[in-house]
Design a protein around this nucleic acid. Sequence first.
DNA 1: GTCACGTTGTTTGGTTACGA
DNA 2: TCGTAACCAAACAACGTGAC
Length: 211
Amino acid sequence: MPPSASLPAALSSPLGPEPKATARPGGGEPQAVVPPFEAVYEEHFDLVFRNVRRLGVPDALVDDAVQEVFLVVYRRLGQFEGRSSLKTWICSIVTRVASDHRRALRRKSPHACGKAEAVDVDTVVDERAEGPHEHTVRLEGARLLHKLLDELEFDKRTVLVLAELEGMTAPEIADALGENVNTMYARLRAARRDFDQAVARERARDTWRLR
DNA sequence: GTCACGTTGTTTGGTTACGA
DNA sequence: TCGTAACCAAACAACGTGAC
């Protein structure tokens, strides 16, 4: 279950960034109007929470990772230049934080990385709002999705999640990750191929189990 | 016609296997 | 052990397509 999107005490300082137009060093044209941190937090909490999990951060560390993302957002919101959308900018932070967490986890426990029984937050619906059977099927589907994503390399997984699950375009993803847009297309193609192969393997395992 | 988006073909760098 | 060929994956450039 996702925690509430209430603002952490550490980030709710009245001294937090106010809406303002950022400026490039040395002057120049006015920059994007940056919304207050509280508004950014409210609007993007779900986005950060679900993508931190989709990018392989285990359940036990999700809260830490989400908080880390918003700490970075809090510190750097004033530097946001508006060259890309706020969502794209936040996604770039999410991918870096998720990558750091996975790397740290690999150092601690090489076999445990990203193999948690995570459940996709946006696929989780109150059991009372749908039947118990539908609820179970939905949860099972979410677990399967994470299992298949776990089989992909981190770079491919990132591109696939942002493109297929967040609906971001290749240029947006390229911007978020600081890569060439054509590299994103190639990586997305490879990610789709690997995902299809993972699906095929899972089907084969299912067929074998049902014998 | 222009632009953004997407696909395809080529290049490049890394890895592995094998023979001298 | 070293050099080399073969292979593979990633990145890039060029090109095609559709919307405006």
